[in-house]
Design a protein around this nucleic acid. Structure first.
Lengths: 161, 161
DNA sequence: GCGCGTAACTACGCTGCTGTCATGAGGTTA
DNA sequence: TAACCTCATGACAGCAGCGTAGTTACGCGC
């Protein structure tokens, strides 16, 4: 159960993200999100997930909580990967026509005005914050998760690209 | 197949909304949306849907197209019914915390700022327009559906409450 | 090299949602 | 009343997305 120095293993990821191991396994098998550090190779091996993997998993989890199915979540993380800007300041906007990253609130209002169809909006800053807080309580199980802002140690682990 | 003077029957509703009869039937059986004019009473009867029923059905259809499951759509139309304001100018906002009707774009930006979690936003004006256009081509099958704005005849059929 | 814990793998089943097909009951017309 | 058309209804199938339980095998400590 000890933390590996480079990456997170399956059961740890489940606790941080807030999903079951069955979901993580299903998503890895169906190519929704494979671990980018080390994939499984047989029945006793270990999957190793990176920090950005966990952020993407948390986005999926948030979408599921909002009632969005996995098919739409699949398109969401596909857009999240190809447009690799600064995640913490953007909003992920899933429309019927396509999927975009919106940098400001005005951009979202513009999309609504010209827009037909439904939009699913994910504020990525909140996602990153929640992931950092969850990783902190994984490191120190005694610490409460209600800290106003996470320590820079955890935030520094964020992937640049 | 002729239009009943007061209300729309099942197969007509399917064409207007763009769903299958199986879906309409399933939604009526599971209490997602029963026809408000006449429910089914046995195997040879007919369901009669009102205009506002069709608008709500179109909202559900849009949500499904956006990847939202029926459970969330259930909460959506529940909110749509209890807050019975002017539909055509509002946006239906489904959050993880709850469901609201937002009147302006700034209201949505405020929700995004203070908000954690994902939002599903339905612009109701576009929904009403699409329903009106679909009803028009139901009346005159030769008319194309690409008209810039629907005729006032169909818009007048909208329910006040 | 040898146990042992952990984690991946497999199989089975369940629920929600939908398609397909056959059946049955009203309503309508002759 | 008999034929006929229209919908609602029922039974079955099928897929997505998991839960549960048992099995298997890597990797670490010794």
């Amino acid at each position: 159960m000890a933390r590996s120095e480079e990456g997170f293993r399956g059961p740890q990821v489940c606790k941080v993200v807030g999903i079951t191991y069955r979901q993580l396994d299903y998503w890895a098998r169906t190519d929704l999100l494979r671990p980018s550090l080390a994939d499984a190779h047989g029945s006793g091996s270990q999957r190793l997930y990176s920090y950005s993997d966990i952020v993407e998993l948390k986005v999926i989890k948030q979408l599921l909580d909002a009632g969005v199915n996995l098919g739409q979540a699949r398109r969401a993380i596909a857009c999240l990967r190809e447009s690799g800007g600064d995640l913490a300041t953007a909003n992920l906007v899933l429309g019927t026509q396509g999927t975009v990253l919106a940098r400001s609130g005005e951009e979202i209002v513009d999309l609504l005005r010209g827009g037909q169809g439904v939009f699913n909006i994910v504020p990525l800053a909140a996602v990153v914050d929640e992931v950092d807080a969850a990783i902190l309580v994984l490191d120190r199980p005694g610490t409460a998760a209600a800290g106003p802002e996470p320590l820079p140690e955890a935030r520094g682990r964020r992937a640049g690209s």
